[in-house]
Computed example of a mutant assay.
Amino acid sequence: MARNATGSGGGTGDGTGPGSGAAVPERLLAEATRLFAEHGYDRTSVQEIVAAAGVTKGALYHYFGSKDDLLHEIYGRVLRLQTARLDAIAARATDVRDRLAEAAADVVVTSIENLDDTKIFFRSMHQLSPEKQRAVRAERRRYHETFRSLIEEGQRDGHFRAELRPDLVVDFFFGSVHHLGTWYRADGPLSARQVATEFSDLLLHSVRRP
């Protein structure tokens, strides 16, 4: 994971002078994401990443312990964003149907907005250390459990079909979300919001009581 990602300049060895250190992690992550997307994680070297970011290897190791820390953080920052947004949606005192619809749309939009990050991660996750893989799975499980709790709440309130298994609903929906990287194109006919609205509508129609 990123270390000292909000730290300020000086002593990083990036050659950009004091006060510029705060931008170094973002530059490294941006260039790593681009290179991993273009060439693949295993075919991208640390030297290529630091050269593209305009920093030294010392700067990279100041913020990230290794190349797989970069891979971990590329997805980790997206998952943290999505988790924070879902937690805020789930905590609202509004109709659970509206919260589930919003949560479903939000994860689609944020996935599309960070499509390279998620594509790279799912393609290369097996190359992380076992410890990091376990950490990511635990973080994703917590996100899915919060999402599932909305379905369970809707069942208790009589809004959603009682015979459905919430865990299977979550698996089915997120299978479609994770598949976005195989077909969605930013220059295609549908915007992120249009896809999000249709995914959300499909989910709500599938769980709502007749």
Rank of each mutant, 00 (worst) to 15 (best):
N4P: 08
N4V: 05
N4H: 15
S8E: 14
G9L: 09
T12I: 06
G17M: 15
G17W: 11
S20N: 11
A23C: 00
A23R: 11
E26P: 01
E26Q: 14
L29K: 02
L29G: 06
A32P: 07
T33N: 11
R34M: 07
A37T: 13
E38L: 13
G40C: 08
G40S: 07
Y41E: 06
S45R: 12
E48C: 01
I49G: 10
V50L: 10
A53K: 09
A53T: 03
Y63D: 11
F64A: 11
K67P: 09
D69P: 09
R77K: 14
R80W: 01
R80K: 11
R85K: 09
L86E: 05
R92C: 07
A93L: 08
T94G: 10
D95R: 15
D95H: 15
V96P: 12
D98A: 15
D98Q: 15
T110S: 12
S111H: 08
I112N: 10
L115S: 15
D116E: 14
K119G: 12
K119P: 05
S124M: 01
H126R: 08
Q127T: 03
L128G: 02
S129Y: 00
Q133D: 00
R137M: 10
A138M: 09
E139L: 06
R140T: 05
R142C: 00
Y143D: 01
Y143T: 00
E145S: 04
T146I: 02
T146V: 09
T146D: 01
I151H: 06
E152I: 02
Q155T: 03
G158K: 10
F160Y: 15
L164D: 04
L164T: 04
R165A: 08
F173H: 13
H178E: 07
H179A: 15
Y184G: 12
L190W: 07
A192R: 04
V195G: 02
T197D: 14
T197K: 14
L202S: 02
L202R: 02
L203P: 00
L204Q: 01
S206A: 14
P210V: 03
